[in-house]
Every structure is written in structure tokens, then in C-alpha cells.
Simulated assay, not measured.
Amino acid sequence: MYNYLLFIHILSAITAVAAVICYPIIMSSARTVGQAKFALSLLEKTAILPKLGGTLLLLTGLAIGFQETYLFRERWYVASIVIFLVILVIFAGLLPAGIKQQLKLLLQTQGDNLPEVYRLSRRRSAWLEVVANLAVFISILLMVFKP
């Protein structure tokens, strides 16, 4: 059973992490209102990936911990769960709210130039994406090297 859980855990991590890494790449390419609308709608559609992958990641990680109860005494394991919860808050709550706000701002925009209010909102989202990507990197380091 452990190997099956580990396999699902790794696939879930790939699904969730790929989406997390792609957010800033997709959004950094938007230069016009039309491109930004398309990029934001794409992110809305792909938002299921970090949610689904992240949920499976958490569930399989906890299941592995319940099979190997010593893990709950390991700092790297507990730190990975805490870091994951930070990522979850960002990708399940903060970024979707930012995406909706940015789309709303763009729908009110006339012309093709990105308004300054959108740029400010986008900077906040970009900062959250950097934090989430850093958290993902640290989480992967903890899981691979188990310090």
C-alpha cells in the first residue's frame, strides 16, 4: 500500500507544482488588455490543477504518515505540511480572489493599455506567486533530502 500511496503522492505533486510554476510564466507574458484577459481566464480554467493535485498531495502525505507514524515526530515532515498549508492558502484563496479582481478591472478598461490599478493588483499576485514558488521549492527540498 505504501508504494501506491507514494506513487499517487508523486503524481499529485507533479500536477500541483507544474501549475504553481506556470502561473507567473503565463502572467508575465501579458502585455495588453486582451492578452491579460486571456491569461487570467486560462488561469481560472487551470486553477483546478493545484487544488486537485494539492488535495491529493495532502491526503496521500498524511496517509503515508499514518502508515509510518514516526514521521509525525520528524521536523521535515511537519515543516512540509505547514509549508503546504501556506501554499494552499495562496492558491486556493488569495490568488483566485486576485484573478477575479483583475478580470473585473480589465472588463472596465477601455483601450488596449493595461491600467495602473491592474498593474498594482498584478504585482500583489506576482508577489504571492513568488512566495508560493519559494515554498514549493523548500517543500521539495525537505521531501527529497529529509534533513
Rank of each mutant, 00 (worst) to 15 (best):
L103E: 10
S121Q: 03
S28D: 05
Q101F: 01
K104L: 03
Y77D: 11
F91T: 14
V144H: 09
I99C: 10
L94H: 12
T109L: 06
P50L: 08
I14N: 09
A19L: 06
V136A: 00
P24I: 00
V33A: 01
F66Q: 03
E129Q: 11
L52W: 08
K37W: 08
L94M: 14
S139L: 05
E68C: 05
I21W: 07
D112R: 07
L49E: 05
I10S: 02
R119Y: 03
G98Y: 00
K100Q: 12
L11E: 05
M143S: 04
I26N: 15
N133Y: 04
A47P: 05
F145C: 15
A13P: 02
K146R: 14
A92G: 15
Y2W: 05
Q102F: 00
P115V: 00
L105A: 00
L11G: 06
D112L: 12
N133H: 02
I25L: 12
Q67S: 12
P96V: 07
Q35C: 03
L88V: 13
N133R: 01
V130S: 06
W76Q: 07
L40F: 12
R123Q: 10
V136H: 01
I26E: 14
L88M: 13
R122V: 09
F7T: 12
L42R: 14
I138C: 08
C22T: 09
L106D: 03
R75V: 09
L71K: 04
L49K: 09
V89L: 14
L107G: 04
G53N: 03
G61S: 03
A47C: 14
I138P: 03
V130C: 04
L107W: 05
G98C: 09
Q35D: 09
K45G: 12
I90A: 02
F38T: 14
L142H: 13
G53R: 07
F145L: 15
I26K: 15
L11C: 09
I21R: 05
P50S: 06
L59E: 04
L134R: 00
P96N: 12
V82K: 03
I26H: 14
F66I: 15
F38R: 13
A19R: 12
G54H: 05
L94A: 11
G34Y: 03
L42F: 08
M27E: 11
M27C: 09
V144W: 06
A132T: 00
Y2I: 01
L62G: 02
V144R: 07
L134K: 00
V78W: 01
S121H: 08
V144I: 14
Y4T: 11
L58V: 00
Y118P: 11
S28F: 05
Q101Y: 00
V33L: 02
T32P: 03
V117K: 02
A47N: 15
T60H: 01
I48F: 14
S139H: 04
K100C: 10
G54I: 11
L142K: 10
Q101I: 01
N113I: 14
Y4A: 07
P50E: 01
K37M: 10
P24T: 10
A36N: 05
Q35A: 07
F145S: 12
I14L: 10
M27H: 07
R119C: 13
A92Q: 11
E74S: 10
L42N: 01
F84R: 02
V117M: 06
S29R: 15
L95R: 06
G93C: 06
L56V: 08
I99R: 06
L141W: 12
T55Y: 11
L57V: 04
I90V: 13
I21P: 04
T32R: 03
T60E: 07
